[in-house]
Computed example of a mutant assay.
Amino acid sequence: MGELVDFFVRSRNFILFVLLEVLCFYFIINTSNYWSVTYFNTSNRYAAQVLAWSNAANEYTRLRQVNADLAMENQRLNTRLTQLLQSKPASPAEYQADSAFADRFKYTVAKVIDNTTQFANNYITIDKGTDDGIHPGMGVISPTGIVGKIKVCNRHFSVVTSILHSEFLVSSKLTKANEIGSAKWDGIDPHLMKLDAIASYKTVNKGDSAVTSEFNSTFPPGILVGRVRTVGVQSNQTFHDITLDLATNFSNLSFVYIVENRLQAEQEQLEKQVEKEK
């Protein structure tokens, strides 16, 4: 306490000077319209700037929650869109799927907590596991396209085999050419993928979309795989040499959607039974 008193005693002249300056400033503002208006405008401008900085900081701290909310909304929209597309395909016009088939795909949102792109065989770790109903074999997609397939799970985490994997194949269809082939990563550029088995007599143009086909039980049909970047002809002259720009940007992957085909086990069991009887 004595030190505080000593400080005020030593600084009494400076403190008096500051108080007199504040008092003068107060009188100037209150006795002059010009300075009063100037002070009012200046203080409002700086207050508005400080408020803008404060709002920007608050919005930045809420980005994580905003992203999570958007991911949940996308999950709901994906479920609804897939249900509508499966219940009434584009052709034939008279076809109507039953409700169980149309509603067979279920989506679960998950957060990416680890991801590699630099290896020949890449994997992704997500924060959902068996406690959330996740099991190996489920498909994984992003808000923009295909991601991979669940490989292993424990109670709280799952590891996904990325499509950036030397053994990952996905049945894909060129929407304009209506031709089905196999998309596979060549192990070089994590932004590109090859599309094989597209007949050379089919017309393929740069920018054409490649989506998941109807001939797989893991992914809903119509999920974007990529868009045609380059088109050539293979040496055997039978198939196109097609390179796709991947729809999913794996370098900034944050949220993904796990796709459960609730009729997959039933379909595969029946197909295995037919194979045994051959």
Rank of each mutant, 00 (worst) to 15 (best):
M1N: 09
G2Q: 13
E3V: 04
E3D: 12
D6M: 12
D6W: 02
L19D: 11
F25D: 11
Y26I: 09
I29L: 12
N30E: 14
T31R: 11
N44C: 08
A47F: 10
Q49Y: 10
V50C: 10
S54H: 12
N55S: 13
A56I: 13
N58K: 11
N58I: 13
Y60Q: 13
V66P: 09
A68S: 11
T82D: 10
L84N: 11
L84Q: 12
K88T: 09
P92K: 01
E94I: 09
A100H: 02
A102V: 02
D103T: 13
K106V: 15
D114F: 04
D114L: 02
Q118L: 05
N122C: 08
D127F: 01
G133K: 04
I134D: 03
M138S: 01
I141N: 07
S142Y: 01
T144L: 07
I150F: 06
K151A: 13
C153T: 15
R155L: 14
E167F: 09
F168D: 05
F168W: 02
L169A: 12
V170G: 04
V170I: 15
L174A: 05
L174D: 08
K176V: 07
A177S: 13
E179N: 09
I180S: 07
G187H: 04
A197H: 06
A197V: 05
A199W: 03
Y201T: 13
Y201C: 05
Y201P: 02
T203C: 07
K206P: 00
S209F: 02
T212D: 00
P221A: 10
I223T: 10
V233W: 01
T238A: 08
F239Y: 15
I242K: 03
N249P: 05
N249M: 01
S254F: 07
Y257G: 04
E260Q: 12
E266Q: 14
E266W: 04
E268T: 11
E268F: 01
L270W: 09
L270G: 02
K272G: 05
K278P: 00
